[in-house]
Design a binder for these strands. Structure first.
Ligand SMILES: [Mn+2]
Ligand SMILES: [Mn+2]
Ligand SMILES: [Zn+2]
Ligand SMILES: [Zn+2]
Lengths: 153, 153
DNA sequence: ACCAATTCTGGACTTAGTCAAGTATTTGCC
DNA sequence: GGCAAATACTTGACTAAGTCCAGAATTGGT
């Protein structure tokens, strides 16, 4: 459970540092965390880390495909280590809860757009918006539209 | 072409103001624009507008379902008036170009997740990531992962 | 024309993230 | 094990996108 993370890092061509190990651990115990939440988690485990190290590391790991970044409308970036399993996300418009949801369309699915404009598509990111069991009946007038952090007035 | 916008506003329960008309016009002539771009556009047409008015108006219109906000990872929020036609988006990881793409799954499609965790889903937002015709061969090593504004080093 | 409700403005403020220069750590090699 | 080059981390200033608030202006109904 300790060497695991080291191995993962080396296998992906990373140098092994206390910070990276801690971030990866934080990530696995706290899915869909923000950079700040991860930083806090890491500080609890190894004492301190700079914001920059957190962002650098997460950025590199995303680039290498070790982790995934998602950023739904109105949310700050979130990170997770569930990768390559083609799962999607379901978000409650009212309470912002975010849950994983398996892809309905098979295994490497969803990669089927109509006219692809000549693009080479390598990922289909799906976010389902709606209301969670606890939040039904609360909001949602005529047309919910899309607005996490709603307007004034 | 002028009263149109007024009508649309009233039909959706908005008071009609110069700012709102201008924003709606800007929007229709400039799809996927950012708040700032819209502000600039509006200033060109009616002289001036406050940042707050732009954000307030866009927020309200999104809430009422008159327009749509999208915010792909690494991008600032973008707005569009194509709404209720269930179209999706295709983004080039290299040059950030963003194009509309019709949904392959039918008409009110995509609203089919596996286990929906008891949520009432009202929208499935899909973003296809890849490389546009002009950008192929440029980047994309082993696993593209996902990273619009990449990392340092 | 008048009033209440709504909207707009200006300016301070916050949050998430980036940049850049210097210091520390890791790793491959002897 | 010790060294040096490469890589990573820290610190602090900075930017971009968006929000908050209080007061002034506009709108729509009578
Ligand atoms: Mn997930
Ligand atoms: Mn579009
Ligand atoms: Zn909820
Ligand atoms: Zn491109």
């Amino acid at each position: 459970m300790s060497e695991d993370v080291e191995q993962t890092l080396r296998q992906h061509g990373f140098q092994v540092t206390a910070q990276r190990i801690a971030i990866l651990r934080a990530l696995s115990s706290h899915p869909h965390a923000t950079a700040d939440e991860l930083a806090a988690d890491v500080r609890a485990s190894i004492g301190s880390i700079s914001r920059q190290a957190v962002y650098d590391t997460l950025g590199l790991m995303v680039d290498k495909g070790l982790i995934r970044r998602i950023q739904p409308s109105g949310f700050t970036a979130r990170y997770e280590d569930r990768v390559n399993d083609n799962h999607h996300h379901l978000i409650c418009r009212s309470c912002d809860s975010l849950v994983d949801i398996d892809c309905a369309t098979g295994d490497t699915p969803c990669l089927s757009a109509g006219d692809d404009h000549g693009f080479v598509i390598d990922e289909a990111e799906v976010i389902y918006w709606g209301y969670c069991p606890a939040c039904r009946g609360k909001a949602a007038p005529a047309k919910p539209g899309s607005s996490p952090k709603s307007s004034t007035t």
